[in-house]
Design a protein around this nucleic acid. Structure first.
Lengths: 235, 235
DNA sequence: GTTCGTCAACGAACAGTGTTCGAAAGTACG
DNA sequence: CGTACTTTCGAACACTGTTCGTTGACGAAC
């Protein structure tokens, strides 16, 4: 009755939203997938949203900001850490094993270490990791204050190591190019002025050893563990 | 003769360029000034250019990219480091003094540590720093391979420390708020489930001690130095 | 079934980043 | 003066994180 002959032609409305509602968990899943595939720098709100079939603004209903997304990813990573049981006779080796495990997980998420730096690890899983390290240290007789500070120092070392690796990985150094780089570095050291850099020249080979593999990390772990052991009172 | 009555009104041409030609050195100066005043994140090509009275594109005639500018700033910082002379009887204290000096300079340039991570320090000044550390380590009888790797480990620790501090500083934690934060952290630790986090609870006070000042850094330095000392053969 | 309130989803826009490209201006040399 | 080269510059690109206002979906109450 009220129909006019010029009904407006309304454009087809795009279907709204993806079929599955967004959740924080889905967002973290998508972000971690992106991180594993393309590295940390590739994890932008836009890319995460795109992977979920939505727009970046939609994410903000579930995570406060990018920083919070980072922390959620970190806690997810920490959930994968499986630290060794405590054995007082083996505390030093166990501490090293714990360090290796933390590094293993960090390596699985290239660049995520960047998000860990400067943050007090308060996620549930991170706290469980801290608790286990404390247990190992106390089992070894490390004094309270040293143990308390060691659970800062150790993650600092591991995080920095993981972060450094990720920076180098992101710079696109292929494994086969590493030997070339090492050779160039040795040549460079060898070309320095012997009057000013005698030790650098003398130790060039040693300094360029262990560029691949875990030798450097294991060395650092040994230094830290031995340093902590030196703080254990003698009975 | 050829003058028409409708002379175009041409807008006044802006004076071109700053009076003083751009140089790489001026660019690094401006960048470091910005960094000291506003922190590393504030050092954008636009801001640097603006401080020099030009546009960001002009900078690229002198520095390849932002990353190169970062490295130039780093080498400038390294030039300020004044490491102690070598005394074999005091090598451990000297190594710690060297570490303090490196940290001091890093602190003077908040956030610059980020640029150091993952880079092999090949600038002239950085190499002189490495050489001095090697001298200290060798004077102390540290084996070659350990010394060679120590000159990676030590800067890694210091750089990570400086970087962590700068992240916390950039988050805007005022000195007077630090006590509040520490109290909140203790309360948080105290509120954890004692069945799952007995040591975290027991050591909460110790873990939140030393949030300001250098206690944590000094602890880390002592651990590393003691660890290295454990590698010195006994005669 | 209808209405209302709440919340999630969304697009547009903002303010910012590093960088490139082509044009214009400056400088040195023949 | 003309030419070649270099520096400077504006516009634009492709991207970042985030906000704001609107729309749509959903559940509860009537």
């Amino acid at each position: 009755m009220n129909q006019t002959p010029w009904q407006p032609i309304s454009p087809a409305k795009p279907v709204r939203a993806s079929r599955e509602p967004l959740t924080r968990e889905r967002i973290v899943d998508a972000a971690l997938r992106l991180l594993v595939e393309q590295g940390y720098e590739a994890v932008s709100m836009r890319k995460v949203a795109q992977a979920l079939g939505t727009g970046p603004a939609s994410l903000y209903a579930h995570v406060a900001n990018k920083k919070e997304l980072d922390q959620l990813m970190l806690d997810r990573a920490a959930a994968e850490m499986d630290l060794p049981d405590v054995d007082p006779e083996q505390w030093q080796e166990q501490l090293k094993a714990a360090m290796r495990e933390i590094l293993r997980v960090m390596r699985a998420y290239p660049g995520l270490a960047r998000a860990a730096i400067g943050q007090v690890p308060l996620g549930e899983h991170a706290l469980l990791t801290t608790e286990r390290m404390l247990a190992i240290l106390k089992a070894g007789g490390v004094p309270d204050q040293a143990a308390a500070w060691a659970v800062d120092l150790i993650p600092l070392f591991i995080t920095a190591t993981a972060f450094e690796e990720s920076v180098q990985g992101a710079a696109g150094v292929a494994p086969e190019d590493l030997d070339v780089f090492v050779d160039q570095l040795r040549s460079y050291f060898g070309s320095l002025d012997p009057a000013r850099f005698p030790l650098t020249i003398a130790l060039a080979a040693a300094m360029t050893t262990g560029a691949s593999g875990d030798d450097r990390f294991e060395f650092g772990a040994q230094v830290i563990v031995a340093g902590l052991a030196s703080m254990v009172p003698r009975d």
